[in-house]
Amino acid sequence: MFMNTPSRQERPGGDNLVARLRSGDGSAFEMLVRTQTPALLRVARRFMHSEEDARDALQDAFISAFRSIGAFEESAQISTWLHRIVINACLMRLRTQRRHPEEDIEKYLPKFLEDGHQAEPSAPWCETAETVLQRTELCGLVRRCIEQLPDTYRVVLLLRDIEELPTEDVAQMLGVTPNAVKIRLHRGRQALRALLDPHMRDIA
């Protein structure tokens, strides 16, 4: 019978649960899906552009996970393992539905004069991450600005700054060089900064 609160032995990542999953125990699958779906759906929503795509990616991920449960190393946390599988499922879906042509990021990058100075001086912001968190509309604004980034840069920003994966891991996941990851991350952050700038400036 399904239990809402896993016992200590059957918590996600517990040896007993993994053994039951490997033996094809249906109630173990159900427990894993029920306990892990909320957090994993949240991850998929970050990457995908629609709720439907996020749900489809999560479904892909669980299918992939259950097919490869034999490869799960018991020293790892099953939640961490699933998290990575969800990200890979999202990346796979994003690759197949990539928008053509992708928006040019150049327009969001800073411009410089011939002498190397910034063409338009930068100004401080009146908002901080802490003040933004206290205002629902600003939280939504930041998320919409992230969503506006071209996928090439948005995905790297999510993987590096939000998921906090190492550069080398991201490079491997995307099939690019670590240097390409660094460049995309810097440009993605610059573009996001440019999108936020008019809303965050200290205009007092």
Binding site: Q118, P124, C139
Partner: peptide
């Protein structure tokens, strides 16, 4: 101007992290 750019770049990262995770 570069100090402002540096600080707002750093705040951009913090805001992205705080509002999504």
């Amino acid at each position: 101007s570069c100090v402002a750019y540096l600080e707002t770049y750093r705040e951009t990262i913090r805001m992205a992290r705080a509002t999504t995770n």
